[in-house]
Simulated scan of single mutants.
Amino acid sequence: MKAALGNPRRKVKRCLVTSRAAEEVGTKLLGRVRHDITDADTVGRALPPGAVHQGVALLCEPLGRRDLADMLTPSERRRIVLVLDQISDPHNAGAILRTAAAFGVSAVVVQDRNSPPESGALAKAASGALDIVPVVSVVNISRALDELQKLGFWRIALAGDGESALKDAATDNGDIALVLGSEGSGIRRLVREHCDAAAFVPMDSVMESLNVSNAAAIALYELRRS
Rank of each mutant, 00 (worst) to 15 (best):
K2G: 03
K2N: 15
A3K: 13
A4C: 12
L5M: 03
G6D: 14
G6R: 08
N7F: 04
R9A: 15
K11Y: 11
K11V: 08
K11A: 15
K13I: 10
K13P: 00
V17L: 04
S19V: 07
S19M: 10
S19G: 05
A21K: 03
A22Q: 12
E24F: 12
V25R: 11
K28Y: 09
L29T: 08
L30D: 04
G31L: 14
H35N: 09
H35D: 10
D36A: 14
I37H: 05
D39K: 13
G44I: 02
L47I: 14
P48C: 08
A51F: 14
G55K: 05
E61I: 05
P62Q: 01
R66C: 01
D70N: 05
D70V: 11
L72P: 04
P74Y: 09
R77T: 12
I80D: 00
V83G: 00
L84G: 09
P90A: 06
A95M: 11
L97I: 02
R98T: 09
R98M: 11
T99V: 13
A102H: 12
A107C: 04
V109K: 01
R113P: 00
N114D: 14
N114T: 06
N114M: 09
S115I: 03
P116Q: 07
P116S: 10
S119L: 12
G120I: 09
A121T: 11
L122Y: 04
L122N: 03
A123F: 06
K124W: 03
A126M: 04
G128M: 14
A129D: 09
L130M: 09
P134R: 04
V135H: 13
S137V: 14
S137Q: 06
V138F: 09
V139Y: 12
V139H: 15
L145Q: 05
D146G: 14
L151F: 05
F153I: 06
I156Q: 03
A157K: 00
G160V: 12
D161P: 01
E163V: 11
A165R: 12
L166M: 08
L166R: 03
D168M: 12
D172R: 01
D172Q: 01
N173W: 05
G174Q: 15
I176W: 13
I176H: 05
L178P: 00
V179K: 00
V179N: 00
G181T: 04
G184D: 10
G184N: 11
S185Q: 05
G186N: 03
R188T: 02
R188Q: 11
R189F: 10
R192P: 04
C195T: 15
A197C: 15
A198R: 02
F200N: 01
V201Q: 00
M203T: 04
M207W: 06
M207K: 06
V212Q: 00
S213P: 07
L220R: 02
E222Y: 02
E222V: 14
